[in-house]
Amino acid sequence: METRKRAFLKVIILGDSGVGKTSLMNQYVNRRFSNEYKATIGADFLTRDVTVDNKLVTLQIWDTAGQERFASLGVAFYRGADCCVLVYDVTAPNTMDSLDAWRNEFLEQADPLHHDEFPFVVIGNKTDIQAKSEKNSVTQSWCSGKGNVSYFETSAKNGSRVEEAFQTVAQKALEQDTELTKEAYPSPIQLPQDNNKSHEGCSC
């Protein structure tokens, strides 16, 4: 196995439209916030170098721009992801309800080795508007019910806890990355050789 000098980690951000995915990414990578809302069109992904456990890793954060509506395209985007960030808007409780759908969507498309252990980070965004999420406890329990999920409440606008959240993302992504990815060689399908079995009716 080759030893890579620097880990290159791929992170996918998912969530309903308008919850602040791009803003979060921008705040984290460029430390900028723009009040003007645009449906994501700009960058497809941003990268930032970050140190985790004294190791320099490159986080490549993929924003979604309409691809999520197309299942077969999703495969291409989610492939090889090391961590998935699910974002909802604390001021719009219904966006929290879609987390389940997004998680399932991701697992189905990316099809990681162990569905239950794949790292997710949930972010409740826009705490600058509403300090505490009404759904805080609901989300907490949702996260603990799903295994490897951390939860943060952030504000992409004032940058509150964004750094912290993504540090966790990097940490988890790195753990996922170093986990040996078994080359899935599917076992061959043995055709039954039981010749004595009588063929009843059409065998096709």
Binding site: A39, T40, I41, D44, R69, L73
Partner: peptide, 17 residues
């Protein structure tokens, strides 16, 4: 290599905007 796939899904978003 993935860029064209990302790009072509943006047209509706851009036009909608």
């Amino acid at each position: 290599l993935v860029a064209p796939m990302q790009h072509c899904t943006k047209f509706p978003l851009l036009l909608n905007n």
